[in-house]
Design a protein around this nucleic acid. Structure first.
Lengths: 110, 110
DNA sequence: CAACAATATATCCAATTGGATATATAGCTG
DNA sequence: CAGCTATATATCCAATTGGATATATTGTTG
């Protein structure tokens, strides 16, 4: 797993950008406006996201449209899957416990 | 989604710690040794992970055992699920495209 | 090409961060 | 309790980072 992905998402404005772009491509100006930040700041953050591979841009007339790239997030998803296994094991044990309790009394007040 | 989680994982040593602790709880000394770093550095990084809620510690005799906490990673997993939807939509469209191509010719040279 | 709109880049600054080293703290053992 | 072990904390330092502002760049349009 690449720490660059985490580093890019570690900043609130950039995380907001990624969530915003989930709805579809946007121009720099639109992004800056929706996130209430200056244009140079937006460009700077978009550059970081771009270098981390989280977004890509495409010229459109005068503007520059930014859109999400899924690869880094997919990689994150795969990385997480190694942990998911252990959660599910625990949930299974919980299920088993609950199932076992079905047959007994249901007291659960504190 | 909490940026603290991403911030904590944005550092290679800390990411290594989380992956290492996936195998089970370890003491500070063990972690420092396995990751080839000094003890104070290890403690410092573990403190960051701890404040982000990614690990918790428990005294054991002379030592202090650190273990993973699953909540932040689960939260990350849930956050990712919003993106997973769109990947799967794309894969579905790809499936449809491939299915459609089955009946036609398979020319795909450039 | 002049004027304008959208964006990128340069610069300055304060704050944060990671590494290294030294030291303090806490538990254990004879 | 003295000495040891394991860990946390304090301090210094160089590097990085995010915000703000000014300026450069690029495309558009009359």
């Amino acid at each position: 797993m690449n720490t660059a992905t985490f580093g890019a998402l570690a900043e609130p404005h950039r995380l907001g950008m990624v969530e915003l772009l989930r709805e579809g491509p946007l121009s720099v100006g639109d992004i800056a406006e929706r996130l209430a930040m200056g244009q140079p700041q937006a460009s700077k953050h978009l550059r970081v996201l771009s270098e981390a591979g989280l977004v890509e841009s495409q010229p459109a007339a005068n503007k520059r449209m930014y859109k999400l790239r899924q690869e880094p997030l997919q990689e994150m998803d795969e990385w997480l899957s190694a942990f998911r296994a252990s959660w599910e094991a625990r949930l299974d044990r919980l299920d088993a416990l609950l199932a076992e309790m079905q047959g007994k009394d249901g007291k659960d007040k504190q």
